[in-house]
Simulated scan of single mutants.
Amino acid sequence: MTPDMLATIYAYTAVGVGVILAAAGLGSAIGWGLICSKTLEGIARQPEMRPQLMTNMFIFAGLMESFPFIILAFAMWFLFANPFVGALKAAIGAM
């Protein structure tokens, strides 16, 4: 196991974590936009349904808000407890 191999693994993991976090942020933003736009469409069509639609919107918005935090936890796991380094050590030890 050379330092170059470890540096490569950590570099690729950092790039992967960046892509994961960017995708989570983008997905959350798109989800928020869709939730809010459909709620406003529903209120425009049936104004008397506003309380029920707003309640549903806040429930789904809370679910949408938890998604990036779950992804953040997985990304931090890859970053700080990198499983690929252990796999590299196991592969080198098996030789």
Rank of each mutant, 00 (worst) to 15 (best):
Y10T: 02
K89Q: 13
F78I: 08
T55L: 15
P47T: 09
L6F: 12
F67H: 09
V19C: 00
T2C: 04
P83E: 10
T39A: 15
D4F: 09
R45N: 06
L40F: 14
K89C: 08
I59S: 04
A94T: 06
T13C: 11
G62Q: 08
I35A: 09
T39D: 01
A87I: 10
G33H: 09
I71Y: 01
V85G: 06
G86W: 12
Y12D: 03
V19N: 00
I20P: 00
G31W: 01
T13L: 12
A23N: 01
A81E: 06
T39Q: 07
D4E: 13
A44R: 12
M95E: 10
M95F: 13
F69L: 15
V85Y: 15
A81M: 08
I35R: 05
L53Y: 08
N82E: 04
M54E: 09
P68K: 03
A23Q: 00
I70T: 06
V19S: 00
A94F: 12
Y10M: 12
N82C: 05
P83F: 13
T2G: 14
M76G: 02
R45Q: 10
I71G: 03
F60S: 12
T39E: 03
F78D: 01
A73D: 01
A94E: 06
Y12H: 08
M54N: 04
F80Y: 14
I20Y: 00
G93E: 12
A24K: 00
I30A: 11
Y12R: 12
M76K: 07
T39I: 05
C36Q: 12
M57N: 11
N82Y: 10
A24E: 00
E41M: 10
F84S: 04
L26G: 05
L79E: 10
N56C: 03
N56D: 02
Y10K: 14
G27L: 02
L21T: 01
F78T: 01
I71H: 01
V15C: 07
K38C: 03
P83Y: 13
Q46E: 13
M57G: 03
G93Q: 11
A23C: 15
M64F: 05
M64V: 10
P47Q: 08
V17I: 14
M95Q: 11
G25R: 01
N56T: 06
V85A: 13
D4K: 05
I35C: 06
W77R: 05
S66T: 15
A87Y: 07
S66N: 03
P47Y: 11
